[in-house]
Design a protein around this nucleic acid. Sequence first.
DNA 1: CCAGACGTTGTT
DNA 2: GTCTGG
DNA 3: CCAGACGTTGTT
DNA 4: GTCTGG
Length: 233
Amino acid sequence: MCGRFTLATPLDVLIEVFKIQEVDGAIQARCNIAPTQEIYALRDCSPRRLEPLRWGLIPPWAKGPEVGSRMINARCETVAEKPSYRRAFRGQRCLILADGFYEWKKEGRERLPYLFRRKDRRPFAFAGIWESWIPRDSKGSGGMQQADPVLSASLLTTEANALVEPVHPRMPVILQEEKSWEAWLRGPASLELLQELCRPLPSEGWLSHRVDKKVNKAGYEDPSCMDALEGEV
DNA sequence: CCAGACGTTGTT
DNA sequence: GTCTGG
DNA sequence: CCAGACGTTGTT
DNA sequence: GTCTGG
């Protein structure tokens, strides 16, 4: 699973790595992105536009946005069939930008967070799906103003690779090459190709280390979140 | 037919 | 909206 | 994902 | 225990 991640790479580097052509809104370094918060995604190949989305896919039929708080992940094994996800999986895939992700290991009563990232610290993308949700006319508005649609997203999960497996049995679907970014975003794609892209990423070129439990608290964003605990590598 | 769910993880 | 369960 | 709340009535 | 909020 993946319930927290980081995106602390400077914007100019993201623009260069992902060939971003437009940037929507201000993006700031994030060390502990939590569900329901803003994430940054590319929804199209051309133009490649970086935009903020809400983490937690809100299906179009939802009565309120809180439905999205339990839709933060989609299993790649079932995403094509689940009523809440399949439409987005067919035609609304996105790349969620990241440069690290946290997974928790259960040790008795404790939940110990680990950070996973590339040795070279290059940013990468989670395979995501997005939806647009239109708020129902809220009671006092009297139809005066139509609320804007809310864009939201889930990220796909797959089996853990050798590096993640000791900590947790699932990990996010990671795309780290231009070719796979293109393939994930590009129009209609065969189920076969998409399944291929969802295989667990090999661990070569990646590192993990334990981090402080202060990461457990959503909203704690100090850069020291990403520091290795003493005695860890 | 209507009502109710629609998701993932991990578990003694 | 669409599917499942009763 | 983890942390924190988990309830109603009626009100200075 | 289970749900909601971040």
